[in-house]
Design a protein around this nucleic acid. Sequence first.
DNA 1: ACAGCATAGTAAACCGATTTAGTAGGATAC
DNA 2: GTATCCTACTAAATCGGTTTACTATGCTGT
Lengths: 355, 355
Amino acid sequence: MPRPKSKGSPDPRKSSSSGVSLKSLAEHLGLSQAAVSFVINRSPAAKSIPHRTQELIRAAARELNYRPNHLARSLRQQRSFTIGVVVPEISEGYAALVMSGIEDHLLQEGYFYFVVSHRHRSELIEEYPLLLQQRAVEGLIVVDTALAEAVDVPSVAVSGHRDVPGVTNIVLNHSRAACLALQHLADFGHRKMAFIKGQAFSSDTEVRWEAVRDAAKKIGIEIKEDLTGQLEGESSSPLLGYQVTQKLLACGEQFTALFTFNDISAIGAIHALREAGRRVPEDVSVVGFDDIQSAAFQNPALTTVRQPLREMGVIAAEILLRRITAPAKTPHPKEIMVEPELIVRASTARISKPA
Amino acid sequence: MPRPKSKGSPDPRKSSSSGVSLKSLAEHLGLSQAAVSFVINRSPAAKSIPHRTQELIRAAARELNYRPNHLARSLRQQRSFTIGVVVPEISEGYAALVMSGIEDHLLQEGYFYFVVSHRHRSELIEEYPLLLQQRAVEGLIVVDTALAEAVDVPSVAVSGHRDVPGVTNIVLNHSRAACLALQHLADFGHRKMAFIKGQAFSSDTEVRWEAVRDAAKKIGIEIKEDLTGQLEGESSSPLLGYQVTQKLLACGEQFTALFTFNDISAIGAIHALREAGRRVPEDVSVVGFDDIQSAAFQNPALTTVRQPLREMGVIAAEILLRRITAPAKTPHPKEIMVEPELIVRASTARISKPA
DNA sequence: ACAGCATAGTAAACCGATTTAGTAGGATAC
DNA sequence: GTATCCTACTAAATCGGTTTACTATGCTGT
């Protein structure tokens, strides 16, 4: 009853999935399903079918608007042309940019993808990869998420730092990123620097902090316990940076520069600084991270360490598809590193002579 | 060769999709596939199978880590539990927020979804819905995109304004939105207002502009041709608003207030104003639209018309699933309207007495 | 005259589930 | 004693394609 009955006469209003199956198309043509399938797919087996017949088949397919059922095809071929993408949350600027790169490459190559966001709930982080595999994805891209254990499809982690078997990590050169930022501030004469670390769950947090400490040591900057804050909370609102900065200000320790974990928190931080009567950049220089789109249009425009997020998404997709289609040829790189770039704008300035 | 051979002994390392099929599970148990299927799915037919046997089956399924192949199930049941989501682009704050609402509800209800972005290319806008239907999606959600023609699955359009058969439109009450903004500015004494319209391809542009004109007439504000600009270009960067505002300033006509199409362009506009020596809000009041996350953290904090984007995504998903699961009961509303809210912050102020 | 080969296909297995229709064997009813 | 019902399942069809193995026919070469 709910199924549209397929009468002998093809209904031209019915398009695609609704009416026309390979079977009905073959019947219409008076040929076998196999013959039609060979021609439609340009399979090598079609070489024994004369051109005339091939054209008849193609014409009929066009006319009846035949579109092969992707489910059936995937089931038989054991190829779904589908990828699973796991992100912490979608609204976040970071993940959205990476996703946009991923999408670009995947769709270009004829793959579709499922997106799931886990909002840092660990049971979802474990469950979603399994659900995705049940849905026959051929590979997984996880963004800023620590994959619990090995999965049995090829996987790529963007900003993954764990050494998980079968997973290729796409990472930023955090050492270089930290050097760029600190050297820039040091060049401007800053010595008393404050820092805002990322949330504990963010996979970049730890690596970046290591890099910052190394860079500070190399450049000869002291990192004071009192002047290091940490973002807390799930959301990616500037509010988090605002709150941490208030705490940093409250501790009483002086600082002339602030290096934040991302641009979003830098925006909140500037707000807090201004509320406390500190001018940016005259009293405090602020360096952000990521270079999100609105960074250039903050007031003052944000000096930041640019992370090639979109490109990282593209690379992730490229590597993954390469691993899927030519597993033998690609000896599966463990890590691919991309380079940051310092974008100097108006939120940093030479330190003013102490009054 | 590429397929993992399924030997008699189950390999405990192989999980999910790899080794265990219903067939192998049934063989392992010495039962028929049907019996196992009944129990796994808690089908009513399982009532004739004794508890003892049911437990054996479930235990074996757990132990071998059996996970039914979703492709096969979908094919047989003609239910894919998959939705297609069509957006202009992913990086945009607007679409990302709506998507986050969509995702929340869909995953909660056990559906997965494919995302495709068309970047306003009309051939993709036509092709993607077909490709999605080929992939057996049970419904479509299109965001800020004009669906070319009727599709044969239930569909919901967020910010759709076309009357397409079979499509439910989720729209903002633009009349109210325009009144809120203009009345607010008028209350502050503004009479000379400038406007930035959306890009021609954005489905809200026209409707909103109508609403603005109506509101202006009602309130008694004159809309000058010279003081209405329009965003141009694909991207959603603040740069677009920056450029339009430069043009508005260049024309020489004076204005004390500016109502922009979205927050992103408001951010660019403020930049341009400031560069031209106009202070915000002292010289020019600016009202944005959407209330994106960083709106509150601009300097000055942005006064804006809040659009409940996330909620609109949730509603879209709800309506769609309701239409899919109970097509008879839901007589398919043509339009659902959500209400805007004016968020007054610091980018608008009472007009200063003319010097 | 007949093997051998190319042409133009077809029949049927298969992917991995769900689902309908049916069956074997024991218990109960009359 | 047997018709009937219940219990505990199973065999086989099905979803819509792809793919392997095979066949029927006609032509060529010797």
